[in-house]
Every structure is written in structure tokens, then in C-alpha cells.
Simulated scan of single mutants.
Amino acid sequence: LEAIPVVDEIGRLVGRITIDDIVDVIKEEAEKDYQLAAGISQDVEADDSIWELTRARLPWLFLGLLGGIGAAAIMGGFEELISDHAILFFFTPLIAAMAGNVGVQSSAIIVQGLANDDLKGSISNRLVKEMLLATLNGFILAVVLLLFTWFWQGNLPAALAISISLVAVIIVAGIIGTFIPLFLNQRGIDPALATGPFITTSNDIFGILIYFWIAKIILGI
């Protein structure tokens, strides 16, 4: 149908909804979700004032700042470990980036499924599936990282610590990226929020904590 009628409570015609009206709503919602995923909390346009753009962007930038402070504090707690094994410091950006990327990938798939009403089965089944997928991806990437680190530094224990940490970080990031949008959706909050800085920052912090914790256990510090 190109248009549908709108009637009042006694059936009188009071207007119509055209396909153009529906497309406008779809476009508006898509733009809103895109901005949420980019860390913009309000509906803004490129020609809005600097103050309006700042109000829309600053809250999530502040969240990122807090996340960075938290990550720095975590690393400070492993100062002795980093001092004795400087190679761990070199791979910190990689661990944080992989955690953020995996989390965004997982949450993006879930958000898309929620939007299209394609998600089937329970939350637990979805979490198990994502955990298995993350395990497979993590194992493949960890093997590559293990070989590279071993040949580069010739330090097998450190290479094992970094590689095992990568697998654990990817698994946790996949679970978080799956759970958070499902949780937000059940709470009536737009799950597109989970694909932005929120999921990236949380996974960065958890990733760094898991990374140094596992490295400390393996390297015996």
C-alpha cells in the first residue's frame, strides 16, 4: 500500500500515512542509532551550534576518560610485573584494541538481530554460542601471536602468557558484547547504545585487567 487511512474513534477519516512518512521514520531511527553507536547522546545535525554538539558528545568522551584513568590505575597495580617483563607493556594496546573490537562486533550482531526480530532461543544459548565463536577466533589469533612473539623475543613463557591472555580477553569481550545489548533491550533502553563507547570502554578495562592478571599467574610474579 502506498498509503493507509487514519480514522478517529467513530471511524471518520482524519488523515493518512504515506510510504514517505514511514521511510522518514525509518531514516530518523537509523540516524539516531548510528549516532548512539558513535557516542553521541542527542539527535544533532552537522550545522548545529558548537554548544549543542558539545552537549551531545561530551558525556561519552568523559566516560572514555574515566575508562582510560581506570586502565592506567590497573596497570599501576602491576608495575613490578611490567618492570620485570617490559614486553607485556608493548602488547597492552593490542589487548585493549582486540577487546574493544570483539565487543563491538558481538554487540552489533545482537543489535541488528533485535532490530530485525531475528534472535531466536534463550539468552543463555546466545551467550554459549558467542563464547564458542570467541574461543575459536581467539585460539586462531593467539597461535599467530604466539609464533610472532616467540620468534621476535625468544621468550616462550611471555609469549604463552600474552597469547593465553588474548584468548581469555576475546571470550570475555564476546560475552559482554552479547549480554549488554540484550540486557538493555529487556530494560527498555535502546540497545544501539551498547555498540558505542560504552562497550568499548568496558571491554578495554576488563581486557587489561585479565591480561595482566593472567600474565602474573603464568610468569610467577
Rank of each mutant, 00 (worst) to 15 (best):
I95K: 03
L193Y: 06
E79D: 14
L58Q: 01
K129C: 01
L145D: 07
S41A: 05
G15I: 04
D117R: 13
Q153W: 08
R187A: 11
D118L: 12
E9N: 11
L36G: 02
D8M: 01
I19E: 10
G121S: 13
D24W: 02
A192H: 01
Y34E: 06
A115Y: 04
G70S: 15
E79N: 13
V23D: 01
P93Y: 13
R126V: 03
I214N: 12
L127W: 07
L36K: 06
M75W: 11
N137C: 14
I214H: 10
P191E: 08
Y34D: 04
P157E: 14
L13C: 02
I50A: 13
M98I: 11
V143R: 05
A108V: 12
D8E: 07
L13F: 07
I217D: 14
W60P: 02
L81W: 07
G64L: 07
L36C: 02
K129F: 10
E80F: 10
K120N: 13
M131D: 01
W51M: 04
S41F: 00
D190P: 00
F212R: 07
E79W: 03
V128D: 05
V111G: 05
F91E: 07
L184S: 10
I189E: 07
D118P: 08
F198K: 04
G15C: 06
V25L: 11
Q35F: 00
A99G: 12
I176K: 01
A161L: 06
A46Y: 00
I214D: 08
I171G: 12
E79H: 09
A30T: 10
A173F: 05
I40W: 01
T135Y: 10
A168C: 13
A168Q: 03
I189F: 05
G64Y: 02
F151K: 13
L53C: 00
I189T: 13
F212I: 10
I82F: 13
G188W: 00
I214W: 06
A168H: 03
I140A: 09
N116M: 15
N155A: 10
V14M: 07
W60S: 02
G39N: 00
F62M: 11
P5V: 00
A56V: 01
H85W: 12
D8N: 15
I218S: 13
G76E: 09
Q42E: 05
A161K: 02
E28P: 02
I208Y: 07
I82Y: 09
L94D: 08
G207M: 14
E29F: 01
A86I: 11
A115H: 08
A115G: 15
A96T: 08
A38E: 02
L193E: 06
V25D: 06
G154T: 01
L1M: 09
S107Q: 10
I87G: 05
L156H: 06
V25F: 02
V111N: 05
Q112H: 10
P181H: 04
M98N: 13
V167K: 03
G70E: 07
Y34M: 04
F151Y: 14
D47Y: 05
G121Q: 14
G76A: 10
I176F: 14
L209Y: 15
L114S: 12
S83I: 06
M98D: 11
I189K: 05
T54Y: 04
I217S: 12
D20M: 00
L209T: 14
L119F: 08
K129E: 03
S122E: 10
A71I: 10
T135R: 12
I110C: 03
